[in-house]
Design a protein around this nucleic acid. Structure first.
Lengths: 198, 198
DNA sequence: GTCTATAATTAGATAGAC
DNA sequence: GTCTATCTAATTATAGAC
């Protein structure tokens, strides 16, 4: 159990990523220095380079992890045959997943332009895989006549933009519970998809 | 008409703002240096300070101008009494205004956190005035029974997020014309508002 | 694994010549 | 109004001691 004093490889790594995530979300990747991250963790700037080759890779690791978590959570769900039920579940899943991770979400949407070309391609591929799940639901419902949409690809992006937008204003301290907000958005998504009114 | 050589006060100012807008949109405010802006304009960095007291004010001026333009264009429209017609016009107005100014829009949404407290308050007030126009339309339609919405304030933000999202993917070179895209979004907004199906 | 020290570069902003 | 030169401070990243 003895450990060399000042040596914490298993705990410093996660703390660095947590500090970077919080600072990047608050001030933006370009505005945050490696020294600020180090200060937040309680180490000197040089120590960070034991955990990341450079600042750019630190950003990519955060975004990659977020997208991997998102896909894993989505794919852990059992498939649903009913398109309306599948759309409702996707809506609630997207909202709750994003509301639980405001910092990671903020970074994922705001810092894409600060990724290197290679890193961007990887993140973008994951984003498209995610989008495709919703597109499949909408296309299936369209085929069954449950939804009325003039363009499934456009509708997919419109729904995701609408749902993700909740992260810009929702606060736990507000008037509505997360569940109540999900309900409001779900009614709007259902209407936007052209599902017949109840 | 004789003009001191190298003196271009009436033309350099706009060119600086144009260069800053383009560079901020592409790389982000924090990642762009005053020297880069100067190089884009074709002057030395020191000359920029004849037109702005500092970099922060340059950012604010761009955002303020954008919001002022937005409000002026919106308020130039004649009021419409029919809520459904008003909502359609708002939808098309918002989309075409934003699609025509991708750089200004990008900055307005991404660089809010880089504004000083005082500047942020001013921009936020304008944003809320804009939002209130849509909220009034939805509330009026709700009262008349034309729309079915469980929460007008939430619906306002949801619709704006959906519409603004078009700027992240639409390109003039794509398969759909701007007008076709407006039509697709309008059908979705109409459904999201709970307007009775045609 | 972390520290101190430092290399090499760049940043925002100003002063004074023209 | 613009230029050149410069100040001061901060940046990413590395080297070597412990």
């Amino acid at each position: 159990m003895a450990r060399t004093q000042g040596s914490h490889s298993d705990v410093t790594g996660p703390r660095i990523r947590a500090a970077a995530q919080s600072l990047f979300a608050r001030h933006g990747y370009a505005a945050v220095s490696m020294r600020q991250i180090a200060a937040e963790v309680g180490v000197q700037a040089g120590a960070l380079y034991n955990y990341t080759p450079d600042k750019q890779t630190l950003l990519f690791d955060l975004m990659k992890q977020h997208m991997d978590d998102l896909m894993a959570a989505l794919e852990a769900q059992e498939p649903l045959n009913d398109p309306l039920a599948a759309l409702e579940r996707f809506t609630r899943f997207h909202m709750s997943f994003h509301l639980e991770r405001p910092d990671a979400v903020f970074i994922a949407y705001m810092e894409l332009r600060n990724l290197s070309e290679d890193h961007f391609v990887q993140v973008e591929a994951l984003r498209q895989r995610y989008e495709a799940v919703l597109a499949d639901i909408l296309r299936e419902g369209q085929g069954q006549g449950v939804f009325v949409l003039s363009d499934v690809a456009v509708a997919t992006r419109a729904v995701i933009a609408m749902l993700t937008g909740v992260t810009t204003w929702y606060r736990d301290s507000g008037a509505l519970s997360q569940n109540e907000v999900e309900e409001v958005y779900w009614q709007m998504v259902r209407g936007a998809a052209g599902a017949s009114q109840v």
